[in-house]
Write a protein that binds this DNA or RNA. Structure first.
Length: 314
DNA sequence: CGTTTTTGACCCGCGC
DNA sequence: GCGCGGGTCAAAAACG
């Protein structure tokens, strides 16, 4: 559908081009880290620093206009996109690309996360037979699941990623004509959720936020239809390979999906459902904390490590 | 008939 | 205290 851009290098989508800046990506060619590294938790901050040009704690970040900490991630994502799309030089009008944000909340908890966790606890322990009115212990630090938000240029809302999802809700998004859809992985005991919404400023952009990680492989039935898993990225992102993925002889998209969803959890053992510990970026939490301290009002990225932009090595 | 989607109701935290 | 917004539930409908 979307034409494959021939110049991937110039086509990558820098979400921080206008509003958020993490050093100068473009002036550090070859210093990109692969997103798979990030997802795997194998990312080391030396790489990150190289990639972004500076350390997270010294990133040049323009705080969001709206400093509300409790606002939902996607709202901020939208803000970012807003900044992006309002930039006439921005390549959003070019062919697709994808950006990602990872979110690792070890700090503040937003209401939604509390609720999500409550729901999970309820599912698991089966102790909350009543819907959703079992408040967690107050004051208890609640760990947030790792989250990854993707901004994808795509015509379809629900991007096929190889897993089976069941829609469990849809809500109108404030200030946006496009609703937000909530999906849950249908695999038994898999707690992965994702939210899908369209940018109201650039309807061609779909924001997909994954939460938690799959503890199972891609369903065989879907893997068979080879197209499905790769479709999402094949059609929505121009980057076919990252250095890391290329090294494995797999398309980046596939690699990304596999690593993202099937990366073995360091297992739980500690801490309930292993929420905090399964976050691929948890190991870097101290650095993140630094970052958070420096940018307490950092909106969307408040709980995320700096965005990783993908591009193909020249 | 099993699975998925739709959709209104509900819960909760936060800001005013 | 109240209203708002985000997130989830669950019954009914739709689908294959």
């Amino acid at each position: 559908m979307s034409d494959e851009p021939t110049d991937l290098y110039n086509n990558y989508f820098d979400p921080f081009q206008s509003q958020y800046q993490y050093g100068d990506f473009r002036h550090n060619p070859g210093s990109y880290i692969s997103f798979t590294d990030c997802l795997q938790g194998s990312i080391d901050y030396n790489s990150l620093e190289r990639a972004v040009g500076l350390s997270p704690s010294s990133c040049e970040v323009l705080p969001p206009v709206d400093g509300s900490a409790g606002t939902v991630v996607s709202d901020h994502a939208r803000e970012i996109i807003g900044g992006l799309t309002s930039d006439s030089n921005n390549p959003v009008t070019q062919n697709s690309s994808i950006s990602s944000y990872s979110e690792d909340g070890t700090e503040e908890d937003s209401c939604k996360n509390k609720r999500e966790i409550q729901a999970k606890d309820g599912d698991e322990g089966g102790e909350t037979s009543s819907k959703q009115n079992k408040p967690k212990k107050r004051g208890e630090k609640i760990q947030r699941e790792p989250r990854f938000a993707f901004m994808t240029k795509s015509e379809v809302d629900h991007l096929e990623d190889g897993y089976r999802w069941r829609k469990y809700g849809q809500k109108a998004v404030k200030n946006s004509p496009y609703p937000r859809s909530y999906y849950r992985c249908t695999t038994h005991k898999c707690t992965v959720k994702k939210r899908v919404e369209r940018s109201f400023q650039d309807p061609s952009i779909v924001i997909t936020t994954y939460e938690d990680q799959h503890n199972h492989p891609i369903p065989a039935t879907l893997r068979g239809s080879s197209s499905s898993a790769g479709q999402m990225f094949a059609s929505s992102m121009p980057i076919h390979t990252s250095p890391a993925a290329a090294g494995h002889g797999q398309s980046f998209s596939h690699q990304l999906l596999l690593q993202m969803h099937t990366r073995p959890l360091h297992h739980p053992g500690s801490g309930g459902r292993g929420m905090g510990s399964t976050c691929p970026l948890t190991q870097t939490s101290s650095r993140q904390q630094q970052f958070h301290e420096q940018y307490p009002d950092y909106g969307l990225l408040q709980d995320m490590v700096p965005s990783i932009c993908f591009k193909q090595e020249p």
